[in-house]
């Protein structure tokens, strides 16, 4: 039994991790300094979810992947220039903030509504994918609420592997404590998976896939509706950078013997 899956991948965008980030106090709460100027990337764990979705869709004829993104549409368009070349998908864009300081529940409501709006949505074939945690809010709390709103009670987080069985079942490996995985078998869709790194390397850019995707991406960006986010639930007392600068002692030209001795003493707590 091969199922033609409908896979909705929820993915935000985040500042490139190589950038320096500074918090500032804005009128609507905390924000990042020059947020709109920072180069952005697709949220890394959500990007893995996209690659896994494309891989699953390839193996199951008739499957389709949607990329559902709540982000500022001008920035999303930039990010799509590369992401579009990675895997075939149809974009559903919602124009709104990508800030880590927005409320996960409000973001979830916007994402769930967008998924419900997919024409011909069939829950018996639906897999909702997303990143386990974002690189912005880093809460690991958005996807569960998306699942609740869509009535999906088979949910998995920190997923590294999904195998679809011949009987339509889904064997799923989730990260748990101590470097182990929990192994579960879900009877079948609908299910929600928050992905960690997964098992696939980042796909190479494929300009042909990019061209095909772009035909739907540009109209999707044009018709992206502004998100109506619920009230900000949190009242921030402050956001600060850590006092991270240490007084580093640099040991140079010391004999290996001496270095090893010093490290051994440090490890032993002497």
């Amino acid at each position: 039994m091969s199922i033609a899956y409908q896979i909705a991948v929820c993915a935000g965008i985040v500042p490139d991790p190589l950038q320096t980030l500074d918090p500032v106090a804005g009128p609507a709460g905390p924000a990042l300094k020059n947020e709109m100027m920072l180069p952005a990337v697709l949220d890394p764990w959500a990007a893995h979810a996209l690659y896994e979705a494309a891989n699953l869709a390839r193996q199951h004829a008739g499957s389709k992947v949607w990329l559902v993104s709540l982000s500022p549409k001008a920035k999303l368009q930039q990010v799509m220039m590369t992401v579009a070349q990675k895997a075939p998908f149809e974009l559903i864009a919602i124009d709104g903030p990508s800030s880590g300081f927005t409320d996960s529940a409000a973001v979830a409501a916007a994402l769930a509504a967008a998924i419900e709006g997919i024409p011909g949505l069939d829950r018996s074939r639906l897999l909702v994918f997303g990143g386990w945690e974002s690189a912005s809010r880093g809460a690991g709390a958005t996807m569960q609420v998306v699942g609740e709103l869509l009535g999906i009670t088979e949910q998995f987080q920190g997923v590294d592997e999904l195998t679809a069985g011949p009987d339509g079942s889904l064997r799923i490996l989730e990260r748990i404590e101590g470097g182990c995985h929990q192994v579960s078998v879900c009877a079948g869709p609908p299910a929600l998976l928050g992905w960690a790194t997964g098992k696939l390397p980042e796909p190479r850019n494929n300009p042909q896939v990019g061209m095909a995707n772009m035909r739907s991406i540009l109209p999707a960006l044009q018709k992206a509706r502004p998100a109506v986010l619920g009230p900000a639930g949190a009242q921030f007392h402050g956001v600060a950078l850590p006092k991270q600068q240490r007084q580093t002692r640099i040991v140079k030209d010391a004999p290996v013997e001496e270095i090893a001795r010093e490290i051994a003493a440090w490890i032993r707590g002497e």
Binding site: P17, P23, G100, F101, G138, A234, F236, V239
Partner: peptide, 18 residues
């Protein structure tokens, strides 16, 4: 009032909720 980190441990916020 809780504290938690944002942007993968880059900045720390203190906040409360009603």
């Amino acid at each position: 009032v809780i504290t938690r980190w944002y942007y993968r441990q880059r900045m720390e916020a203190a906040l409360e909720r009603a």
